[in-house]
């Protein structure tokens, strides 16, 4: 029954992209947070979460993403999302996440905008 989350990270100049594959529940959210905080420790202050490989999330997982947003605000960093399913995007809007972490349609747009 387990739907685990796989994460990969692409470190680029001045920005890191976290790719997710699978269900973002409490464990999945914790995995993303672990990867995000490691990148912050390495000096990255601009993070992009590419959720192309995630088709389902739950509110417990999203609440962990809110913790990451809080941390990014604290350090004056930037967090963005891209490649969301329409339902995940709608859910993020319902919750108001998009006010604090912009949502981009694709990775190229996100990278260009977040670097500017």
């Amino acid at each position: 029954m387990t739907e685990s989350l796989n994460i990969t990270v692409d470190r680029r100049e001045g920005l890191a992209v976290i790719y997710t594959e699978g269900y973002i529940n409490n464990q999945g959210g914790e995995e993303i947070a672990k990867a995000a905080y490691k990148l912050l420790d390495e000096g990255y202050k601009t993070l992009l979460l590419n959720l192309a490989g995630t088709k389902i999330v739950n509110s417990i997982g999203i609440s962990i993403l809110i913790e990451i947003i809080e941390k990014m605000i604290e350090i004056d960093g930037k967090l963005g999302f891209c490649c969301l399913t329409p339902t995940i995007e709608k859910t993020f809007h319902i919750m108001g996440l998009a006010q604090y972490a912009p949502i981009y349609p694709d990775e190229a747009t996100a990278v260009a905008q977040m670097r500017s």
């Binding site: 609440s63 962990i64 809110i66 947003i69 809080e70 605000i73 108001g96 604090y100």
Partner: peptide
């Protein structure tokens, strides 16, 4: 979201 960003319980 404003309330949850400040709250311990998100």
């Amino acid at each position: 979201i404003e309330g949850k960003l400040k709250a311990v319980r998100k």
